[in-house]
């Protein structure tokens, strides 16, 4: 499973980024994590240097659900990203995470992009890319994910 992404020689995240590194650290633990404000408890995505609701600088990270629904997507036929050029056409979109108000960009694994529908159920799986990078990959519940 996820052999295609495991073999991907694509762009790597900057693991030194003070906010975003927590997301990638979580993935190595096979967890999806989002930023939570310690003062107002608001959950926010993408992660930022301050809480967008109360401007608190006290931000923590919580594990969020590894499932969600598909909000919108694009079927990519052309990309300048190394590695992904070998995967076209592929789907990438916005996933609405269950139980928490987080919407995040996600790569959607499916052999049948034409049949994707808005609102369908997705479940995250993890693809080990080596050198400490684990990619979140969204699979379709309808395909037995």
């Amino acid at each position: 499973m996820n052999a295609e992404l495991a073999a991907l020689d694509g762009p790597r995240p900057d693991r030194r980024d003070p906010e975003i590194r927590h997301f990638w650290d979580g993935l190595t633990e096979r967890e999806l994590r989002a930023q939570v404000c310690a003062d107002c408890q608001g959950v926010q995505w993408p992660p930022r240097a301050a809480c967008v609701k109360c401007q608190s600088l006290q931000l923590t990270w919580h594990v969020i659900a590894g499932s969600g629904t598909l909000s919108t997507w694009t079927e990519v036929h052309r990309t300048g990203l190394a590695g992904y050029q070998d995967l076209v056409p592929y789907a990438v979109g916005i996933v609405e995470i269950d139980e928490t108000p987080v919407r995040m960009v996600g790569y959607i694994h499916t052999p049948d992009i034409d049949t994707l529908v808005a609102g369908e159920r997705l479940v995250v799986r993890f693809a080990e890319r080596g050198e400490g990078v684990v990619l979140p990959v969204w699979h379709r519940e309808s395909e037995g994910a």
Partner: peptide, 24 residues
């Protein structure tokens, strides 16, 4: 930082892609 940290590693990078998300 979002483009490089949360989008490019997942296959999203060009305006034609992000704007097509709006269109759909």
């Amino acid at each position: 930082q979002f483009r490089h940290g949360l989008e490019h590693p997942l296959g999203l990078s060009l305006p034609v892609q992000t704007y097509s998300l709006m269109c759909r």
